[in-house]
Design a protein around this nucleic acid. Structure first.
Lengths: 261, 261
DNA sequence: ACCTGAACACCGTTCAAGT
DNA sequence: ACCTGAACACCGTTCAAGT
């Protein structure tokens, strides 16, 4: 019953860039990476390739748009808590800790990857192909905001956020529940079997070449991806708060103004 | 003048898997990703596609082999310091610190990426496509060895090393000096201009959507990739040694045995 | 302005046939 | 065992032509 007063002039124009991106995500979700072809799109949308290229430019742009769309919804559906200009920072474990916020962002991406297995590869592909494109930018923004309220001096915001984002993307990259080109979505049994096989293979490696791998074969077989993902986040957060201890009782130092000359 | 006593039986067989992998690396270095095609290989090696598929299986396998080869040399050319079963751990900044070792491994990969720009994307692609393939395994081993001598309890070896590796790969992924499909290798001037353009674009973003990005635009323009890469490593290392303080004077805590029941 | 659909220049991969 | 080279089934992308 939404009253579309004027926009509905051209009802015929069913094909929009938005609809193409949506369909691309559907295809990727359904059949996985490499199933997103222009021809598959045309048949799903009942058009020709020319129509798609009128809206989209090229295939990489479409992949970037699809990735950006999924990332945006993954980060937007979280309780955003946009401002309250970051006044009180409690020392202990209050509910709205910046640490919690960062963990929430990270988990949002992690869960998006498990929902859209193709996303893992695309996140890092976008990171390398377009290091400051919309995908990376969006993630940076979401991670960076809570970093500001973490007690990190402004001069270290960029470096600190980079470290978090880089860990986060590296971790989600490996955590892809990739069944490759299989049509079967990876079940837990599949995963357990995969880990068993890998673990066994590790124990048969040459002990001279891979002593460390052999030593951790058992741990790797038993590990839980999500749990370890969070442990890594906490490890990095510990590093941050150790290097930049939160202002407790006395204010840090700067009585003198930062402009030296 | 190397005396090849017996191996030279079949001099005719010039085409080996090794030679194909070498040529693949050459092609990738010269013309970049996407220039590695079977046809390009056949013309460089003066054969047909069948000859290549006799040795190689498929294209992904070749890319993995090329990546593994470059990674292996990058990590092998470092002074390996293979054992001396990790006896004394000095508290201060001794030369052979495990921290130094980890930094050396990380820088080895970082430099390999600047030498082979295609490597950045391939490292993360292998990480997602083949999470425990030879490429990841090799990196894990090199990072994990010094982790053992860092004072980390054995139960945390896997998680700790994972965190380091994930950061490391995420960071090198973004640090690709990617000129895209350009034939011109990215000069420093190109890079500076790229950063300038990006920084300007950031300052024109909607302040409501991207307040953090705007705040760090200047820092990002001035940052040095290699320096920041190391800072990130140190951040993670700080987290590790904070959570697992090295055994100084008194042993940490565990007087009681860890098996409770 | 938006869409059609044939056509182009390329891929990776296979496979009968050779030596 | 190793290699040849034609052939197959697919790509992404373009572009004259339509409405």
């Amino acid at each position: 019953m939404a009253i579309r007063t004027r926009q509905s002039q051209r009802l015929r124009q069913v094909l929009t860039r938005e609809r193409i991106v949506e369909t691309a995500v559907e295809l990727l979700d359904a059949v996985g990476e490499g199933a997103l072809t222009v021809r598959a799109l045309t048949s799903r949308l009942a058009t020709g390739p020319g129509a798609i290229y009128w809206h989209i430019g090229n295939m990489n742009e479409l992949l970037e748009a699809a990735t950006a769309a999924v990332v945006a919804t993954a980060l937007d559906t979280r309780p955003t808590r946009p401002a309250e200009p970051a006044g009180t920072i409690e020392a202990g474990g209050a509910v709205g800790t910046p640490q919690d916020e960062i963990r929430a962002v990270a988990l949002g991406l992690f869960d998006a990857v498990t929902e859209h297995p193709w996303l893992a590869a695309q996140l890092v592909v976008q990171l390398t192909r377009n290091p400051w494109g919309p995908v990376t930018l969006r993630i940076f923004e979401s991670v960076g905001r809570p970093v500001r309220t973490l007690g990190v001096p402004q001069g270290d915001w960029f470096t600190t956020t980079s470290t978090l984002v880089h860990y986060l993307l590296g971790a989600t990259a490996q955590t892809s529940h990739n069944t490759g080109d299989d049509t079967v979505p990876g079940s837990e049994a599949d995963r357990a079997e995969f880990l068993n096989t890998a673990s066994r293979a590790w124990q048969e490696l040459d002990p001279d070449d891979y002593p460390f791998i052999q030593a951790i074969a058992e741990q790797m077989r038993e590990h839980d991806d999500r749990e370890q993902f969070l442990t890594g986040i906490d490890l990095v957060l510990t590093g941050i708060t150790t290097l930049h201890p939160p202002t407790t009782s006395r204010p840090p130092a700067p009585e003198r103004l930062p402009s030296p000359e």
